[in-house]
Design a protein around this nucleic acid. Sequence first.
DNA 1: TCCCATAATCGCAATATTACGATAAATATT
DNA 2: AATATTTATCGTAATATTGCGATTATGGGA
Lengths: 109, 109
Amino acid sequence: MGTTKSDLFSKEQNDLAMMAKALAHPARIAILQYLVKTNACVCGDLVEELGLAQATTSQHLKELKTAGIIQGNIEGASVCYCINPKVWKQYKALFNAFFVDVDLKDKCC
Amino acid sequence: MGTTKSDLFSKEQNDLAMMAKALAHPARIAILQYLVKTNACVCGDLVEELGLAQATTSQHLKELKTAGIIQGNIEGASVCYCINPKVWKQYKALFNAFFVDVDLKDKCC
DNA sequence: TCCCATAATCGCAATATTACGATAAATATT
DNA sequence: AATATTTATCGTAATATTGCGATTATGGGA
């Protein structure tokens, strides 16, 4: 136990859940917002920006990279991170599709 | 350790992360999709629908209820769950606002 | 070449999540 | 009243996440 039973659910459901998981930490939200704001492909000033230790920040960056939503390019000694626009749009589209339907019917139990 | 350092981040960032966390499991995605589809405020057939144990299903329902995105009304011996349309729209709006900005600038590292 | 800066990874501790069986509480049915 | 149905909660085990110090690996100067 402790492991999600992914086989019970559709690929779409698992994908959406994985995307949500990538966003399910304020540090990762903050990283993405910062990257959106600066565009200019930041690197290690994220450590300062967040106030978390270097190791922790690096771990969050890795998770976002694994989720595909950001990419990193080596630039000398440092690494330049930025949003992956293609995947970003996929996230946007899928969340949008997920949240669309309910608006009409307001009656509930 | 093991605990998120929420005090480092803004209320907005923590809120978004909490919303994402509520969606960060395929069973909870499946529950929400089922409630959207049936509207008709389902109850315990979710256990059948999901294929998870009753205790586990109840636990996921509780998390969604705590997040505010669903509500439950007692109906005899069973409980009728449904989407909370107001909170649902808040989720939709916040995720939409989060994902909006990047579209213009496509250049990256 | 010898240091310094940057960032990834390892190892560990604390806590959270996921899942389930067993039990409890509340209502329905007989 | 006795029993069955439905759902919440408790307790527990397995695994995942969060966070950090220490270490490693790489590249840029001095």
